[in-house]
């Protein structure tokens, strides 16, 4: 750790402050995991209750857009991982650039997601925007409800992530975040971003690839 790090009130040294910050982030991600855990529990129970209809409904989703989005997110995670590495090496401009790139990929993800929703509206499959009569059966309706809730909850997290990374990149670029002294900030934002990606990596097979 560099000498430029500023200590906040209850901490007596930099290592303690760094570890506390990291631990706090891990605990927070634990709570996020339980939040999505509830959604996954509902998905799995619904599938167990109606296996055949669940699979049939799943096959109507746009599996290629989902796959593309998975690729986009994994790439963005790679960019964030690089950004953390460069931040540790005090290469501020490079780190900021990579964070912006990752946030950009996040926007691409959200754009593709929006496009996918539009397609589904046209197909009469998206609840809220289509009449219940359009569904082939009640369980398809149920599945699409779940799909909409799960993906929009994830999209909200993505949006927060994009804002977080953009803001951080801006602060780094302006010199507001001394590196590597405050690399914890980059690490923690990175952790959050990876977490949101991982959630998608599980959501994608659970919803799109049910066979």
């Amino acid at each position: 750790m560099s000498e430029r790090i500023e200590l906040h009130e209850p901490f007596s040294d930099a290592a303690q402050q760094h570890e506390a910050g990291m631990l706090g982030m891990y605990v927070f991600l634990g709570t996020e995991m339980m939040l999505f855990g509830g959604v996954f529990a509902v998905i799995f129970v619904t599938r167990a209750l109606h296996p055949a209809e669940f699979v049939a409904a799943s096959q109507k989703l746009h599996v290629f857009i989902g796959a593309l989005n998975t690729g986009v997110l994994l790439t963005s995670s790679f960019a964030v991982a690089l950004a953390v590495a460069f931040a540790r090496a005090a290469r501020a401009r490079l780190a900021a650039g990579l964070l912006v790139a990752a946030a950009g990929l996040g926007l691409v993800f959200l754009g593709l997601k929006a496009f996918e929703y539009t397609l589904e509206i046209h197909e009469g499959l998206l609840p809220l925007f289509s009449r219940p009569a359009n569904f082939s059966g009640p369980v398809e309706h149920l599945f699409m409800n779940l799909y909409l809730v799960a993906t929009s909850l994830h999209a909200i997290h993505m949006t927060i992530g994009v804002v977080l990374l953009t803001g951080l990149a801006w602060r780094i670029a302006r010199g507001g975040v001394p590196l590597p002294g405050r690399v914890a900030l980059v690490e923690n934002s990175g952790l959050y971003w990876h977490f949101v990606d991982v959630i998608w990596v599980f959501l994608y097979p659970a919803l799109y690839l049910a066979r």
Partner: peptide, 9 residues
């Protein structure tokens, strides 16, 4: 931290 998020969702 482990139970509250389940209620939230």
């Amino acid at each position: 931290v482990l139970a509250t998020p389940v209620l939230s969702v």
